[in-house]
């Protein structure tokens, strides 16, 4: 199996002079792996995800994602890579407030040609159904509850067959039943598509869904 993600001697700080947030010697994630990432709040989980998705750029070291060395390409190339190949569920959901549920979900397909291959409207409808959002399909996302918005964000990440899904606490606002349903859906889709999945959560009970779990404090030596 080839590596989907490979970090080496990766350093990152938000400000050049402040303390390091990320200091990882080596982290490799294989293509198609399901990885569970956990650690205490404020330890740098979201920061690490942003580095791998190309939202942030490492100060030094190498960050190789889906065959591209992110530290060596421009911001727009990183945006492009993320748009085409990565579905990112942000911790704050980052939905566009004036668009409806459906419009938000199909947005990645409208922006990236590569993700609009199949009939993405049909795919969107399927996702909407399986996430129980049918009755909200034409509502503005601001009219939805936080848990519902989280599901919209998940659908937006899953649409268009991305090679990698990065999920930053996608279940933090869901109740137990919805969490279970959400995880089952995610695993179902994974069974079909076998994308690389990196999943961050506080909730260590979710570990059992994944093939590997990584404790961030064990690999990140930022102090």
């Amino acid at each position: 199996m080839t590596k989907a993600i490979s970090l080496k001697k990766c350093l990152f700080s938000y400000d050049k002079n402040t303390k390091l947030v990320i200091n990882i010697d080596q982290l490799d994630i294989e293509t198609g792996e399901k990885v569970f990432l956990y650690g205490p709040s404020g330890h740098g989980k979201s920061t690490l995800l942003n580095l791998t998705a190309g939202v942030l750029k490492a100060n030094s070291g190498s960050v190789e994602v889906l065959g591209q060395e992110l530290t060596k390409i421009s911001q727009s190339k990183r945006d492009h890579l993320r748009g085409e190949k990565i579905g990112y569920i942000f911790q704050i959901f980052n939905l566009i407030p004036y668009l409806t549920v459906k419009e938000n979900i199909v947005l990645p397909c409208m922006i990236n040609k590569k993700r609009s291959d199949d009939d993405f409207h049909k795919q969107a409808e399927e996702l909407i159904d399986s996430l129980g959002l049918r009755e909200y399909i034409d509502k503005k996302v601001t009219d939805l509850s936080i848990g519902q918005q989280q599901r919209v964000a998940a659908a937006r990440a899953l649409i268009g067959n991305p090679q990698m899904i990065i999920a930053d606490e996608p279940t933090s606002a869901l109740d137990e039943k919805n969490t279970r349903e959400f995880m089952e859906l995610l695993m179902n889709v994974w069974e079909k598509k076998k994308f690389t999945l990196i999943f961050v959560s506080h909730d260590e009970r979710l570990k059992s869904y994944f093939s590997r779990s990584i404790s961030l404090p064990e690999i990140n030596h930022h102090d």
Partner: peptide
């Protein structure tokens, strides 16, 4: 600004 950032996070280029 946020809206623009969201579009970029979904792969819209700066040119877009």
């Amino acid at each position: 600004r946020r809206e623009m950032a969201i579009l970029r996070s979904l792969g819209a280029s700066s040119r877009h």
